[in-house]
């Protein structure tokens, strides 16, 4: 069961990275694409908790860091998504395993977008990457957050439903009394 879950999570992340880099960029709004990988990481974190969030975030971010056309220092998205995933997992714990409401999911996505984009930009600044432009940060964050919520409406229920199907029986009992 655990192997199946890990395999599914890896599959989700790979699909997300592929679609994000080659399909979603064609419907970018002002250059900003939907962070599908982040959404999948948040979905995994919401269904499995902070450890899963952090590790899935690390794996997904690492893919974003090394899959072309990435040309920045590897590890930046990994760090950003790992922390965003961890926080999303904590939010799930806060609501004690019961399904997080739609508003909660939307807020989590916005928070995750803000946290990950900020960490990505901040690490770029620390590494003296000349391409980081804080003047554009606010606008791009706003667009990205809105876009991610739209993407999350489709993706998060799907991922959480599939992950729920492969949940161990004892956890299912605890969640659904």
């Amino acid at each position: 069961m655990i192997a199946l879950r890990i395999g599914l999570a890896a599959l989700f992340l790979m699909i997300a990275v592929t679609v994000q880099t080659s399909v979603l960029t064609n419907i970018a709004v002002a250059g900003v694409t939907c962070d599908l990988t982040l959404i999948v990481v948040i979905a995994l974190a919401l269904s499995r908790g902070p450890e899963w969030g952090a590790i899935a975030g690390f794996a997904g971010g690492l893919l974003l860091d090394v899959v072309p056309p990435a040309d920045h220092t590897a590890g930046r998205w990994a760090l950003s998504l790992a922390i965003a995933g961890y926080i999303a997992g904590l939010i799930r714990r806060e609501t004690s395993g019961s399904p997080v409401g739609p508003l909660g999911v939307a807020l989590t996505v916005v928070l995750g977008t803000a946290v990950s984009f900020f960490i990505y930009s901040a690490t770029g600044s620390l590494l003296h990457d000349p391409s980081v432009d804080w003047g554009e940060f606010g606008v791009r964050l706003g667009i990205a957050a809105g876009y991610d919520v739209v993407g999350a409406i489709v993706v998060i229920p799907l991922v959480m439903w599939i992950m729920g199907r492969v949940q161990p029986a004892r956890e299912r009992r605890r969640v659904a009394p």
Partner: peptide
């Protein structure tokens, strides 16, 4: 072109 970097990465690169 099979992949385009998004504005969130700040870098303008394509695959």
């Amino acid at each position: 072109v099979i992949g385009i970097g998004s504005a969130q990465t700040f870098s303008h690169t394509v695959t």
